[in-house]
Structures are given as structure tokens and as C-alpha cells.
Design a protein around this nucleic acid. Structure first.
Lengths: 144, 144
DNA sequence: GTAATATAAGACCTAATAGGTCGGAGTTAC
DNA sequence: GTAACTCCGACCTATTAGGTCTTATATTAC
């Protein structure tokens, strides 16, 4: 239902931590996982994937960990989603290669792809740096 | 991974059929399902849901079927998605009522909600009528 | 050199839910 | 009235996201 996976959520939290809070910009998967109560092994897998995409740089060994692979201002939400969940697709029939059962008779494919492109551009124009800027919008709700 | 469900795809196809191709703007779930090779009962369930939301009007009995509940120009993609899949949410932690495990420590919730609102506005500005306008973009690929 | 700590990578299990199925109840045409 | 057709709502199943476990490999501190 148009939701990004939990893995992406976790990856986003981790990147944001590396960008804003981690001492010297470095932290191990274990430290980050404990900080946010995320299963360690799962976050590790996410970090590995992001390392493969170059979003983070991995340093093995004692006092190792992960650091951002490039400036936070050059990492977009689209980069993160695609790194973890693969290429963005809002329809079941992904690309030209795997046509779905309704390919021949489908009347809404082209319009939907345009919608996808518009959503993609939203993700592409949101950078990690912007998300870290915490102009916190704490709603001033008062409970009596 | 940010994908809308097959049900939504099917619902969209059905609505588009009612809007553009159905004789007198009326068709039964069976007819539509056969037209697009969709499991009849599944489409029936989708149509039911959309009937509850008022997107389509149901007519029981012989020669019955479904018709659009209101003008195609007033039905947005957001209406359809919300009718079938429920309120749009891109994160696991939906609304204020059900906080996720990371609620307290989550640093990306507010920015993500802004992203959600931007995506929502994309869906809200795309109407069924626009999607039906088939300025067909058939790619001129030639196979030798 | 060795022990400790870190990532890397793969198989594997489980629980949520999207996808699909079934029998029944209501309407209409004749 | 009855038969044919429709919608309707509960039920089941198969896929996959989410999470776990194990082993291997690299780096650093001592």
C-alpha cells in the first residue's frame, strides 16, 4: 500500500545518525542498532547493502564501523530507497522486460508511469542533509 | 517497496473501463474481469470496497452491475488508493495512535511525513479523467 | 603473534498480509 | 413464483518482508 519497507526506515535512521550524531561521523552497526532498538543482524544487512552502493564506507576491525560514503547533501531519499529495496516501481509490472498478465489490455500503465516519475522526483529532491535539519515541528498539543 | 497493491491496479482498470469503454457506463464485475483476465471474485471484492466508499454505485439483480459513483473528473488517484488500501502511509508508524518501537528515538519521522504529504498531493492532483485521456505514448520500438 | 572486535555473506525460519476462493443473500426479469 | 443473475462477506493460502543464526574474513590493540 505504497509503503517503504522497514529496512529503508532503519537505513535512513542509521544514515541520519552518521550524519548528525555519531562521534567523528563513525559508528558500528551494533552501536546504531542499540541506539534505536533495531535488531543488530538486520541493520547489519542493511548497512552491507548500502556499503555495496557506496552510500556508506565500511571499516573493518576493532574501532571500525561505518561512515558516510559521500556528503549528506548529495545523498537523496531516492538513492537510499533504491539501494535497499531496488529500483522504484509503483506497479506490479516493473519494466519492459517482465510484462504482467494484463500487459496487452492494460489501459493505465502509461499514466501510472508518469505518476511514478513524479513521485520519484519528490524522492530525488529530498536529501539526507535536509532531513537532518531539525526544524522540529513538535505540535503544541496540550493534554489536560 | 513503495508499491501500490494489485488490488489498486485492478480497481483502477475497472474504473477506467467504466469511465471510457463500458456501454452506458455500466458493467458487471464478471464482464470487467474477463476483459482484463483478472480473477472474478477478487475484482468483485475490490468493486465492493469502492462501492462502500461511493466511488462506484452497485446495482444488484439481472442486468445489474457497477457504474461510476460520481464524475470521473472528481475521482482522484488518492481516492482510489485510500478506498482500497486504506489511508496512505509510507512509514510503518502510521498515525499518532500507533507508535512504533522507535517512536521515542526516531529522528526522521517528521521529515518523512512531509515527504508523504508531497506524494499524497501528487496522487490528489491526478484524476481518473486525466488518466483516461489516452495521449498514447506507444514507444516506437522496432524489432528486427 | 594472538585475542578482541568489526564487517561480509549466506542459509534459514517465521509471521504478516496480499492475493485468491467459496458459499450465501438480495434483486430483477419473465 | 421462480430462475437467473448480481452483489456480498467470511474464509483460506501463498508470497514475501522481517528477523535469526552461523561461519568466514579483515583490522587493530596489546
Amino acid at each position: 500500500m505504497l509503503r517503504l519497507s522497514k529496512k529503508t526506515d532503519y537505513g535512513l535512521l542509521a544514515l541520519n545518525y552518521l550524519a548528525s550524531e555519531a562521534p567523528a561521523g563513525v559508528a558500528s552497526a551494533r552501536v546504531i542498532a542499540e541506539k534505536y532498538d533495531i535488531p543488530v543482524e538486520l541493520l547489519a544487512k542493511v548497512m552491507q547493502q548500502m556499503a555495496r552502493s557506496g552510500l556508506v564506507a565500511a571499516h573493518k576491525g576493532a574501532h571500525g564501523g561505518y561512515a558516510l560514503g559521500r556528503a549528506a547533501s548529495t545523498i537523496t531519499l531516492a538513492d537510499i530507497v533504491e539501494s535497499i529495496d531496488g529500483p522504484l516501481a509503483i506497479t506490479a509490472c516493473g519494466r519492459d522486460d517482465d510484462p504482467c498478465d494484463q500487459y496487452g489490455s492494460c489501459t493505465v500503465r502509461d499514466p501510472l508511469w508518469k505518476v511514478k516519475d513524479r513521485i520519484l522526483s519528490v524522492l530525488q529532491t529530498t536529501t539526507l542533509a535536509e532531513m537532518g535539519d531539525k526544524e522540529v515541528h513538535v505540535p503544541l498539543t496540550v493534554r489536560i
